[in-house]
Design a protein around this nucleic acid. Structure first.
Lengths: 193, 193
DNA sequence: TTAAATCGTTCACTTAAGTTAAGAAATGAA
DNA sequence: TTCATTTCTTAACTTAAGTGAACGATTTAA
């Protein structure tokens, strides 16, 4: 589990044993059962998540309807906006599968960053990369139709199609569950000719 | 002009005179005429932009159609994904108005960051905040209709409605120019009753 | 200043998503 | 296992966006 974490980090900065021990002393690993809600609307938190194994999703409840906006799987990190803005959360976070997480607290990060500048560099690089990646995702979403988005998802994150319920995929694609079902039927028709 | 920059920075970190001079010695201010293209598809660049005055936009050309995905106005920063990924740019950047920019180069940033850790902190905080803000924008886009997006834009960035051509706003909202025109007419009807 | 290009609107028509409802299939809990 | 809930699909109908075309209005460039 530690190997996964340090393997990931080593792609961005190289850590000394002291630095690795500093991280490990923080007791950050956590196992969570499928269905567990990690954060609710209205709650305040300082926790960020990094998924080692499993899948979590973020969703809003608007007009008493669930709107799923993101999934985080292996090697993906999530810092909820409410942590940055120091406001109550606007959304929910829950586990779609049994999941192993790294949970870090923003107070903890401030402390570690000031002690080990290398961590600050790591955080900066990760933020910059996530920002660029998310910008591209957003642009692709804006410039495509629901059908194109679905085909794009099959290409880029085929695992999600398998491990996530359709109705959650639908709002992730910006449409209703019935529309996704119809869209899929349409695609099957097209391929038959 | 410098006051605007340092006023902005002071919201996040406090700089010494030495640090301010280090920034100023870099010759980063640049005036650009309306219509100027700052970056083209296929080009490589290491430049990031911060808008002091004016407005720039990013757009793709897909099926020989312009798709505008973002506008950056006063006090907003843009680091193109191609700078982070070290790939040729997928999109164009151009000036909608006569614009005053700060242009920084990623090589320059690496150097400044290593000399002045405070800059690295600044970059980290700004990236984290932009990431959170963009996440919220993306979620709002996903969970609303074109009409809601337009009404939301009127609330949150009323200036854009004035200073940007409609057909560019349309693709920013994820629809065609004709649809935006029709949508606006529909809203006027609704308000008449 | 004039001609050309761009921009915004409108219209008729097509296509696809939203809505409401019903029923079958899969899942989960007692 | 069985019952209840959730999930997925299908269908008919409504609503709104996409498309192609036309026509002023505005802007731009020669």
């Amino acid at each position: 589990m530690q190997d996964i974490l340090f393997g990931f980090i080593s792609k961005y900065v190289s850590l000394t044993d002291d630095e690795k021990n500093a991280i490990l002393s923080l007791d950050i690993f956590r196992s969570v059962k499928k269905g567990t809600t990690l954060l609710k609307e209205g709650q305040k938190t300082k926790d960020s998540y990094f998924v080692l194994k499993g899948c979590i999703r973020t969703y809003y409840i608007l007009d008493s309807e669930e709107k799923t906006t993101a999934f985080y799987t292996e090697m993906e990190a999530l810092t909820p906006p409410c942590v940055i803005n120091k406001t109550p959360s606007e959304y929910y976070i829950s586990c779609i599968e049994d999941t192993i997480l790294i949970v870090s607290n923003s107070d903890m990060e401030v402390e570690v960053n000031s002690k080990f500048p290398k961590f600050e560099t790591l955080c900066r690089i990760l933020s910059e990369q996530l920002l660029a990646k998310q910008r591209i995702d957003f642009d692709e979403f804006k410039t495509s139709s629901p059908e194109q988005r679905y085909l794009n998802l099959i290409q880029k994150r085929p695992d999600l199609i398998q491990r996530v319920p359709q109705h959650q995929l639908a709002s992730f694609l910006g449409i209703k569950p019935q529309s996704l079902s119809r869209l899929r039927a349409r695609l099957v028709d097209k391929n038959k000719g």
